[in-house]
Computed example of a mutant assay.
Amino acid sequence: MDLEIGSGKGTFLVQQASLEPQVRFLGVEYARAFALYAGDRLRRRGVANARMMHTDGVMLIRFYLPNDFFRQVHLYFPDPWPKKRHHKRRFFQTENLIEVHRVLMDPTPGLPESGRFRVATDHADYFAWMEEHAKQAEHLFERLPYEPPASAGECEVVGTNFERKYREEGRTFHGMILRKRPA
């Protein structure tokens, strides 16, 4: 099972779940209107292997999810909370990396995508923040070169509506994959 935190309108979820019918997907979105839209989009497209939840991703992983549960966790274009006083609201925090590590299954030779935390953003300062926190979590994760998911189009990082909209503006995109180190 894969988890997408901050699914927005569900573009990645619909595309990737359609390409991997053997994998179950759970999308979580805090904005109720977007969660409802994404859930309806999955229903209209007949994507039976994906579900949507309207909830806070941090609370979900911290208090409700079991250990070693997800093959991959996806975090694409999270809110960068650019003001310094709001940085505590960013998802990419040491405490959350510990929880992501806990809910990810160990990398398995027969499952090449297993144990991965996939991240992408268009915000250079937030990406620098992510790199800094990833270095602090080297005991939990090893960093791999970024590879777009199968659902991404040519020259895309993820292939979400957000990315397509801002690509036209000429924004630069950044991505990283962190692979879980077994405990």
Rank of each mutant, 00 (worst) to 15 (best):
M1W: 02
D2K: 09
D2W: 10
L3K: 08
I5F: 07
G6N: 09
S7T: 15
S7W: 03
G8V: 03
K9F: 07
F12L: 05
L13C: 09
L13K: 12
V14A: 13
S18F: 00
E20F: 12
Q22T: 14
Q22K: 14
R24M: 10
R24K: 13
L26W: 10
G27S: 06
G27I: 05
G27H: 05
E29K: 11
R32K: 12
A33I: 07
A35E: 00
G39F: 09
D40K: 15
D40L: 12
R43N: 08
R44F: 05
R45T: 02
R45K: 14
V47Q: 01
M52I: 13
M52E: 12
H54I: 11
T55Q: 02
L60F: 05
R62W: 03
R62V: 08
F63A: 08
N67F: 05
F70N: 03
Q72F: 05
V73T: 08
L75Y: 02
P80W: 00
W81S: 04
R85V: 12
R85I: 10
H86Q: 12
H86R: 07
H87I: 01
K88R: 13
R90M: 00
Q93H: 10
Q93T: 11
T94C: 00
N96M: 15
N96K: 01
V100E: 07
R102S: 09
P107H: 07
P107F: 11
T108L: 14
G110W: 06
G110R: 08
L111T: 06
S114W: 07
S114L: 08
G115P: 13
G115N: 10
F117R: 02
V119Y: 15
A120N: 05
W129F: 11
M130E: 01
E131M: 11
H133Q: 14
A134W: 08
Q136I: 00
A137G: 09
H139N: 11
F141I: 02
F141W: 04
E142A: 13
R143A: 13
R143G: 08
P145V: 05
P145Q: 06
P145G: 04
Y146N: 08
P149C: 06
G159L: 03
G159Y: 07
E163S: 07
R164S: 09
K165L: 14
Y166H: 15
R167S: 14
E168I: 14
E169N: 14
G170W: 06
R171N: 11
H174D: 00
M176R: 04
I177R: 10
K180Y: 07
R181Y: 01
P182N: 13
A183L: 13
